[in-house]
Design a protein around this nucleic acid. Sequence first.
DNA 1: GTCTATACCCGGATAGAC
DNA 2: GTCTATCCGGGTATAGAC
Lengths: 239, 239
Amino acid sequence: MTKADSGDRERKSDRTRRRILDAAADLLSRKGFDGTRVSEIAALAQLRVPAVYYYFDSREAILEEVVNIGDRMAVDNVRARLAALPPEATAMDRICAAYAGHLEMVLKESAYTAAAMRTLGQLPPDIRARQLEHQRETGQLWRDLIQAGVDDGEIDPGLDPRAARMFLLGAVNWATEWWNPERGSLDDILATAQRLIRNALSGPGAASPPGTAAQGAASPPGAAAQGAALSPVFSPPQL
Amino acid sequence: MTKADSGDRERKSDRTRRRILDAAADLLSRKGFDGTRVSEIAALAQLRVPAVYYYFDSREAILEEVVNIGDRMAVDNVRARLAALPPEATAMDRICAAYAGHLEMVLKESAYTAAAMRTLGQLPPDIRARQLEHQRETGQLWRDLIQAGVDDGEIDPGLDPRAARMFLLGAVNWATEWWNPERGSLDDILATAQRLIRNALSGPGAASPPGTAAQGAASPPGAAAQGAALSPVFSPPQL
DNA sequence: GTCTATACCCGGATAGAC
DNA sequence: GTCTATCCGGGTATAGAC
């Protein structure tokens, strides 16, 4: 009961810690790094401030853990969507699935990834440096995905691959600023994003390739197209 | 000499005021709304804090004026680029020129527009409300541009126009996070952005339409394509 | 583990001399 | 117009009881 149940159910202490992180993620995604107050985190987590300091050494420690979890959730969901693709998926199919997986986590109710993406440029140098360290692998994943599309001739050769990759990442990361679940379902916006991304990278003169049945049809809003209807798959943040 | 030279050269007082705004824009674009300190603004403007309060009523008043100027510079440059197009420009040409004009201001050394775009979600409710009021006209401009493309059949009917518009706006607004002038010229990145945007909106099965000579050629990095080489045109912020 | 009370510092803003 | 000096509120963090 003391050590045997480590994999069992979260102990109360862990649940409290998680409540603090959830509250911090929510605030961080809405107010930014400097705008997030420990007192607000505590209030949202139904605690007094000193209780928060029982679990974390400092305000920055809380926020750093939030962004780390947010980054991790994003890349885990990207990998899960890639793994769910059939073997005959093209390089372009994989790129679209990856962006959709990322966007899904940015827009989820769980605000960890939104918080991580929104505070990129506001992090203190030391936190930012450690984050970049962790993201090396993720950066390589994205570069490889795009490069595969280039190698297979599926990507407009007139595009600079790095710039295109970053522009599209910005497009999905910025979606928190304007997307509202009341104006359309998550699946709809994922479908639109994928169509836009496929168009953007394919370039002119690229007719619908095999494995892209949904491309030609002008699916009306309300009907989620293609791979966007995949059930959300992601790993919960590890505490 | 007291009133006759109003249009002449800025008086010293105006120049000092401008130095404060320039400093605030720079800091705001890098540190965000809550991270920008009056003491830092003062230091960057070569002043002590009380001198800053001689020109502005409050910290928020400074920052609000910065974002207003930033928004204004962006839309002014968009309009200037649209006005510079030849009469035979298509709806898609106009859309690309508009995004290029916006992106140009986001990436300019002058940090006003970058500051405005980066702090959208961090503004206090009252400032945000006034900003939205000012932006009504701008929003309509963008909607009209896209709608013209839809009406002319130049835009992929499978795309939701609003979502597409916002995704692409996000792509350009987020460019501050990753673009570095040392890795490529401004004209290059504007050219890449325009190509990506044209691809994204045109959709599959859209061969290069007339008036889009540069589309088919895979211009190597270093050679700015098409309209991107337009000399930067924008109105200076009115003080 | 969680609280009340408090030390401490920092940032916004003002008073008043020059 | 710009300064030195200072006030004040609020935010981080800790001490110590329960």
